[in-house]
Design a protein around this nucleic acid. Sequence first.
RNA 1: GGGUCGCUAGCUCAACUGGCCAGAGCAUCCGGCUCUUAACCGGACGGUUCAGGGUUCGAGUCCCUGGCGACCCA
Length: 506
Amino acid sequence: MTTDSPAAAQRVEPGDEGLAERRSKLARLRRDGVDPYPVGVRVSDSLAAVAERFAGRLQAGEDSGERVRVAGRLVLRRGHGRLAFLVLREADAELQVMAQSHVLGDDGMARVADLDVGDWVAAAGPVVRTRRGELSVSATEVTLLGKALRPLPDKWHGLRDVETRYRQRHVDLAVNAEARRVFTVRAAVIRALRAELDARGYLEVETPLLHPIPGGALARPFVTHHNALDLDLYLRIAKELYLKRLVAGGLPRVYEIGRVFRNEGLSTRHNPEFTMLESYQAYADYTDVMELTQALVQRAAREATGATTVTVDGADVELGGTWTRRPLLELVRTATGRDELGYDADPRLLRDVAASHGVKAEDGWGAGKLVLELYEKLVEHTLREPTFVTDYPVEVSPLARRHRSDPHVTERFELIVGGRELANAFSELTDPDEQRERFEAQARARAGGDTEAMPVDADYLRAMEFGMPPMGGLGIGVDRLVMLLAGVPSIRDVILFPTLRPEPGA
RNA sequence: GGGUCGCUAGCUCAACUGGCCAGAGCAUCCGGCUCUUAACCGGACGGUUCAGGGUUCGAGUCCCUGGCGACCCA
């Protein structure tokens, strides 16, 4: 808590010279006994409620006689001497306030004239339509609720500079309707995912963010330290291993929507912290999960956008209907034109084909990893319509159950839409002995320098040894789903405060 | 990590192949106006051109180093 002294009112920080005018207004208000940051001012209606209630009502020049008290940010002011029009905004609702000196008096009018665009303002008075037909509050009282010391961006052009939009989201949201739209879509998507899972009898749970052993995905973790236990802990890279413990504990359907953290680079599609939905269902396999995934995405699309068609890179993509399923190996064979490719094929053949497509194979890579790399290089970005790519190699799927009819691959799929991965799912591996072998293979890769490979998690293995039902698990990248449904190209557009380098000198 | 592009007033943008005092609109301030809709009219204020170094008679512009960001690639 700081109390502004007269000295503070006079203080002008370097680079803040433009604030001097507003600071002197602030000082003047305080001198006149006006609290520029008051508390306890109630409103009778939101701006949206007034606009809705009077839509289509009142003739031009008519007074409803109904008094309201409304509030919002002052975004526009038009002065006419002894008359002034103010426009208040709250979210996407705007309402005009008419201030007249014969109502407010000279003092009241002078205080209205002292308001700046950006100030938070309350106005009380009857709802009227002006002679020109604009719904307005004819103010008998105007109250400053919060003085703005910094000016808002240009009223017409808004804020364009993307860096400032991300760094100062409060300004972006205040002036850019598009930013508000995207985050409204985001909320609708998450609401729809929850509603569908709740309706299907899934229990929403919360599992730890701090993990003693990072697991559940192939990724580098953030490390932190607990002082009292003198213990290194890791921010979770996935929720998988805890959620599966819950199914083992007898909760047949669970899900969690929450942040996960991966210590990786930044890009249009990657933010170090992002939101993932994970769900697990006992007695289900990956084909059941396909049905669930399709239902979740389609419901989110309908409820967030009112349609099942989205636009990706300028082309329409239809999310409705039943989605295609294609095995990974088949896609790679088609893309390379090499039907002899397979997980049993001569490893030199795969390495040659990989090299001929510009995939630089590393030493420890087996057939499965090579096929996956070829798929990511040649195929993934070409899959525009929703596609379940199925049957990923065992080598790159340490937590997925081996396929019931092909030992080289797992019962796993990824959902690709618009060339981008949206979901990853499998029939879960529930055999503790095989899981131990998989972990050990991962540990060898880790020893060989693969920093994303999983460490052995003995506690998880012990949990498995108590017995697990067969289950199907799903992970959906919520940010990417929002990007798709909101039609924006960068993950930073769907995360309110994306990770950025600190500003120099900040 | 590599490449390309960008950074000019609070905001949105100008400024020719290096050449007059770096301009405009909005915002702000002063004056006018009781029905505006980005109100309008008159006037004023506003700059470390991202930072530092270099080339030049002269740098927003060319060169080097660094910062931050966007896009593409790995």
